[in-house]
Simulated assay, not measured.
Amino acid sequence: MKLEQIHTIPDPYAPFLLSQAIRAGDLLYLSGQAGAGAGDDGGIVGDGDFDSQANQAFLNLERALRAGGSDLEHVIKVTIFLTSMSNYANVVKLRRKWFSPPYPADTIVEVSALYTPEAHIEIEAIAVVRETGQGASRMDSW
């Protein structure tokens, strides 16, 4: 099976030797999407503001899905990493905002830290590709 790398422009993952997503057949595997903004520095938005970071993480997830030929309606599994389970209720609200029934399978995990101390949430996903013939050549800019 051919693996296709999916990325957007700019690609914040390239310096770290990561793929933003990998397409394998009709499945799309997305690396964790955090609350990094569209600025040149890729810095975390909303210093200390979980809701701002979470909304940005979902926007980033949506953008990466589109680049890979999918969308939020075709997400079948998400794993959401939180630095504090005190934000669990907020995550439930966000799932209602960003997903629709049938809701994707989900695992929510508390971790002691993410890739930068400012990050409070990271979302990884698996989705079904809705378009055939789309892949690494699809890029979406911020």
Rank of each mutant, 00 (worst) to 15 (best):
N87I: 02
E131K: 13
D47M: 09
P104I: 00
L65P: 08
D47E: 15
S100K: 14
Q56W: 03
E4N: 05
I44T: 14
L59P: 00
V128Q: 12
P12G: 02
A119R: 09
L82D: 01
V75M: 04
T8F: 04
V91P: 05
S100H: 11
T107F: 07
A14P: 07
V92D: 07
I44P: 02
L94W: 03
P101V: 03
V92N: 05
L27V: 07
G68C: 03
A34E: 14
K97W: 00
I9T: 14
A36C: 15
T83A: 01
G37Y: 02
I80R: 08
N55V: 09
W142G: 05
G39N: 12
G42T: 07
M1S: 11
L17N: 15
G133P: 09
V92W: 04
Y13N: 11
S137E: 11
P12L: 07
A54N: 00
V45M: 05
Q20D: 04
S86T: 13
A21I: 00
V109L: 14
A113E: 13
D71W: 10
V128C: 12
Y29V: 15
D49W: 00
Y115P: 07
P12F: 11
E62I: 01
S52E: 13
R138M: 12
T8E: 06
P104H: 01
G43C: 09
V109F: 06
A67K: 12
Y88G: 02
A89W: 05
G69A: 02
P15D: 01
G133E: 05
K97L: 09
M1Y: 13
S70P: 11
S141P: 09
K97T: 03
L28T: 01
D11S: 03
G25Y: 04
A24N: 08
P15Q: 02
W98Q: 00
S141V: 11
S112I: 04
K97E: 05
G135T: 00
G68N: 02
N55Y: 10
L28M: 03
D71M: 07
D26L: 07
L3A: 09
G69H: 02
D71G: 15
I22H: 07
G35E: 03
I121E: 00
D47C: 08
T116G: 12
L3G: 07
I6P: 02
L59W: 11
K93V: 08
V78P: 04
D41H: 10
S141R: 09
A67D: 03
E73Q: 14
I9E: 13
S19H: 13
V128M: 12
I80M: 06
P102W: 02
A119S: 13
M85R: 14
V109Q: 11
T79K: 15
P15A: 00
V111I: 05
G133K: 08
E110C: 05
L82G: 06
A67C: 06
R138P: 06
L27M: 11
G135F: 01
A36Y: 06
E122D: 14
T107E: 13
G46T: 00
R96Y: 04
Y115S: 13
R63P: 07
I80A: 04
L27Y: 11
K2D: 08
R66W: 13
Y13R: 10
A136Y: 10
I108E: 03
D41T: 12
R96K: 15
V91M: 06
D26A: 08
A14R: 13
A64N: 10
V129R: 08
Q20K: 10
Q5I: 15
V45E: 00
R63G: 04
G39D: 07
A21D: 00
P117L: 06
